[in-house]
């Protein structure tokens, strides 16, 4: 009897890209749920917009590049980019914000470089920075938390832009602190503002906790290793704490920094993107600390209140160099 042959091992692999990506998507659900509860249908519409755009753009690029569309479209990586971007942009931004951001992320930041596995930058963050630089006005007007918008209002807001609701948008807490501090106000005064919740931004701290929950689940499922999240969080928390101890007047506590903006999302979902991160364990620690430090530096002295996207892109840039110096190159062992 004749048989077909192949190379060992014959046992099937115990994981797949699709499976990993699916778990990341599942881990984003708590954050999505929290945002839905805080903001209403706007966040779902943004997600839908960016997802459809991402899949269409990915399919188009794959078709142009003559790659198997079915295989690569269902690796779900485009959906993750879309989801991260949709959760990062203001929920009340007009529709063309998420569409153009997603197009930039998928086409320029991912497919032009060769698609999944070859992109030097995190596509979602590249898309975010593109939007932030191009449309600063739309990208900084955030919907006020606990203002649940029903479907009809959300549709009207995102697609026509004509909806007048009192107190629809408000500054994020990081933004608020930045402007108030520049006006010479003291931190304690700012902290009594209505934007403040228990520790950080009102409502926002819950979203951060939801990201933490999803991230811990990813760690438990071994989808991500703990190196990058731990490094990012300590890279942010340690200098913040030192700063806080030295200058209680204008510096925020580490806990505040961790729960503000997208720190936890970055630590568990953005920095852990393996394609654009460093690969060795020691390299990942350096990479993570670099992101944390950059977040601290940009938040403290930089022009932008939240710094995740810039910090991640700068670290992406240095990942090859980090890899080069941290690869435990197996040396010829002597007897």
């Amino acid at each position: 009897m004749q048989f077909s042959t192949s190379c060992s091992p014959f046992t099937p692999a115990n994981t797949s890209v699709n499976q990993l990506m699916r778990q990341v998507l599942i881990a984003l659900l708590p954050a999505l749920g929290t945002m839905f509860w805080l903001f209403g249908y706007t966040v779902l519409l943004q997600l839908l917009l960016s997802s459809i755009t991402a899949l269409l753009a990915e399919a188009l690029c794959l078709w142009l590049r003559k790659r198997p569309i079915k295989v690569h479209l269902f690796d779900l990586s485009a959906l993750i980019t879309a989801a991260l971007l949709a959760l990062a942009i203001p929920t009340i931004a007009p529709w063309w914000i998420s569409v153009s951001g997603t197009l930039f992320a998928i086409i320029i930041a991912k497919q032009v470089y060769g698609g999944l596995g070859y992109n030097p930058f995190n596509p979602a963050m590249a898309g975010y920075v593109f939007l932030l630089i191009s449309f600063p006005q739309q990208m900084t007007a955030w919907q006020s938390p606990f203002l649940f918008l029903p479907l009809s209002d959300s549709l009207q807001l995102i697609f026509s832009g004509h909806l007048v609701i009192d107190g629809l948008s408000s500054a994020t807490i990081l933004d608020h602190i930045k402007t108030q501090l520049s006006l010479g106000l003291s931190l304690t005064g700012i902290q009594s503002s209505a934007l403040f919740g228990n520790i950080a931004g009102k409502g926002w701290e819950l979203i951060s906790l939801a990201y933490l929950l999803g991230g811990l689940w990813l760690l438990y499922r071994k989808v991500i290793s703990s190196h990058i999240p731990v490094a990012v969080l300590s890279g942010l928390a340690i200098p913040t704490s030192i700063h806080y101890l030295l200058d209680t007047g204008s510096a925020n506590s580490a806990l505040f920094q961790l729960l503000s903006g997208a720190s936890l999302c970055a630590a568990f979902f953005i920095a852990t993107d393996p394609v654009s991160a460093a690969t060795s364990n020691s390299g990942r620690l350096i990479y993570g600390i670099l992101i944390g430090l950059l977040i601290y530096i940009i938040r403290t002295w930089g022009g932008y209140p939240d710094a995740i996207a810039f910090a991640v892109l700068l670290a992406n840039l240095s990942a090859p160099a980090i890899d080069f110096y941290t690869h435990p190159k197996p040396l010829k062992q002597q007897l």
Binding site: F10, P12, V17, G115, S225, P274, S280
Partner: peptide, 19 residues
């Protein structure tokens, strides 16, 4: 059922699990 499915390889995503 026991064999590895003969599906095409995807690009490396640098997860580092191999090392």
């Amino acid at each position: 059922n026991e064999l590895a499915e003969s599906q095409s390889a995807m690009p490396c995503i640098r997860c580092g699990d191999c090392s």
